[in-house]
């Protein structure tokens, strides 16, 4: 049975406990950042931030909405990145059967810049990043080291509000359903983002683009999301299934 996250954005206060807990657990160095007129910092995911809280604000008439989106790898059920990486070298991206964690291996250090870009472009959520110098791949690994020991991922443990949840996929789906029903009372357009395709399910109170341009899967121009998943599905190696 694989694991899943439920990220209930309707509870998030953007305290960034998750963003920092992730950085601290993996002892990732700090980036030099600047204030450019937003609280979202660093501006984007990068080799030193596997997790980033995105801030998006809206004014509709006199109503202010401030949406927070703790962005991270979705650990896709059938990861397009794995398909893409396999075309370069099999096994460069692995999927842990027990947890469903999608993990980049150091084989990717051998990838050319074009190969890496190809892997990044395959991601419908634009998650993968690398350290430009070392080509060290960087993204959320589901705290597989912790999870295998029966511990919660660092970001989930740190979350004060119940935004970050983690457990068996079936439990998370049930919780997601329950929370969605409740949120829908006030927010009829509330939704679960791509719940069938990913292990990191976001509960959104309103249209995904009001959170982040890639809150739901964004297919490359030529493909629909379904086509995208279909196209990579065929290229999956038996490794992940073994």
């Amino acid at each position: 049975m694989s694991k899943a996250f439920l990220i209930d954005t309707t509870r998030c206060t953007a305290c960034r406990g998750c963003q920092l807990a992730c950085k601290e657990w993996y002892e990732l160095p700090a980036n030099k950042t600047k204030q450019v007129g937003t609280h979202q910092n660093p501006p984007d995911l990068n080799a030193n931030n596997y997790k980033l809280v995105r801030f998006n604000e809206h004014l509709d008439g006199e109503t202010i909405t401030w949406n927070f989106f703790p962005d991270q790898c979705r650990h896709c059920i059938e990861p397009p990145c794995q398909g893409a990486a396999d075309t370069v070298e099999e096994g460069a991206v692995i999927k842990d059967e027990a947890t469903g964690a999608v993990i980049f291996t150091d084989k990717m250090a051998q990838f050319s810049t074009e190969d890496l870009d190809y892997v990044r472009e395959s991601c419908p959520y634009d998650i993968p990043r690398w350290d430009a110098k070392t080509k060290r791949p960087a993204k959320c690994v589901m705290c597989i080291d912790r999870v295998r020991e029966g511990m919660l991922p660092a970001c989930v443990l740190a979350c004060p509000t119940g935004t970050m949840n983690f457990g068996e996929r079936s439990e998370m789906l049930a919780l997601a359903k329950e929370r969605l029903a409740k949120v829908k009372k006030d927010h009829p357009n509330a939704m679960l983002a791509d719940q069938e395709d990913v292990s990191v399910i976001y509960l959104l109170a309103e249209a995904p683009e009001r959170y982040h341009t890639k809150a739901v899967a964004q297919a490359p121009a030529r493909n629909t999301r379904k086509q995208l998943f279909a196209s990579v599905r065929s290229s999956l190696t038996s490794v992940s299934k073994s």
Binding site: Y26, I94, I103, D106, I144, D145, R148, E149, M151
Partner: peptide
């Protein structure tokens, strides 16, 4: 990991999942 090398270097372990599990058990706080 203690040296602050934060990449999840699995290449030296190969992609054999039994070895990935070995990695996973090496929790830094254990």
């Amino acid at each position: 990991t203690g040296a602050g090398v934060a990449c999840l270097s699995l290449s030296q372990l190969g992609f054999d999942l039994t070895e990935a599990r070995a990695y996973a058990t090496s929790l830094k706080t254990k």
